[in-house]
């Protein structure tokens, strides 16, 4: 369980997060949604100790992220940020292999190689494993980074917009595989997604942030509905039900609601 208590954060005097408290349960997929600038990425950075906490406390399975040694935390929690511009010339296999560093500290064992293989397999990267990152398309690179984080094999995996640059096939595939990993090995994924329908279809819990505050938290049905979305995004969005999941038709303006 990730426990976030009274976390506030400011950047250059501007308030980014304001007294956020919430608990992210262990196991399953938690989706973070909200408009641009709601503080989603900042919250992930704080959980993953990439940004030092200014106020409040965050614990991961009881371990305080500010006081726990960073290498111990690296075996519990991993993060992939939104902007991954790696200048270094590495092959896909190298990159994914570095995901095992917290476990082997420079001396990979057979187990480490097995994890790398599994991560490559999961993201469909085997044909590309010998290629350099700068020879890949944006979507392929994105999959390589996700594979690296998966190879780290932590209980908690934070992904900031993992579907960036992915085509429809790979976006759906990635969500299916994350869901599968959560089900089979009990991993917890915390994901920032912009396409609300991916959250509605795959998340077990949705957390909505707005203006640096926790707006609401609940199952897809509780969050992905017309009144709630209107409140979070300040946009009128029609919601249908498709295959048992709420489905937001956010691309087009809906018929006005008829009050009855």
């Amino acid at each position: 369980m990730i426990k976030i208590s009274h976390v506030s954060h400011q950047i250059a005097g501007a308030s980014i997060l304001n007294d956020v408290s919430l608990m992210i349960p262990r196991g399953g997929i938690t989706a973070l949604i909200g408009p641009n600038g709601a503080g989603k990425s900042t919250l992930l950075s704080l959980i993953a100790r990439l940004t030092p906490l200014q106020g409040g406390q965050i614990t991961v399975d009881g371990a305080d992220v500010t006081t726990t040694p960073t290498d111990a935390l690296a075996r519990r929690l991993s993060i992939l940020r939104q902007d991954n511009s790696v200048a270094a010339r590495l092959t896909v296999a190298d990159l994914v292999g570095f995901g095992r560093y917290p476990h082997h500290k420079g001396r990979p064992t057979a187990e480490d190689h097995a994890h790398v293989e599994k991560a490559l397999e999961m993201m469909g990267l085997h044909p590309l494993s010998g290629r350099f990152l700068d020879e890949l398309s944006g979507g392929q690179r994105q999959r390589a980074f996700v594979a690296m984080v998966l190879a780290q094999d932590t209980d908690y995996v934070l992904l900031d917009e993992p579907l960036n640059n992915l085509d429809m096939k790979h976006a759906r595939q990635m969500m299916e595989r994350l869901k599968e990993a959560a089900r089979v090995s009990g991993k917890s994924f915390v994901i920032v997604v912009h396409d609300i329908n991916f959250a509605a279809a795959y998340a077990d819990l949705i957390v909505a942030l707005k203006d640096g505050r926790l707006h609401s938290l609940g199952t897809p049905e509780e969050i992905v509905n017309r009144p709630c979305l209107r409140d979070v995004f300040e946009l009128d969005i029609a919601v249908e039900t498709v295959g048992g999941h709420p489905f937001a038709l956010h691309q087009i303006a809906p018929e006005p609601l008829v009050e009855s």
Binding site: A48, D71, A74, I79, G99, Y101
Partner: peptide, 23 residues
């Protein structure tokens, strides 16, 4: 050479370094 892995990870930037538990 002994630190090679660590320097390679540094080459991927601060965020990746911290995520992988590097001091």
């Amino acid at each position: 050479y002994l630190f090679a892995d660590r320097f390679s990870i540094m080459g991927m930037g601060r965020d990746v370094s911290i995520t992988l538990g590097l001091n």
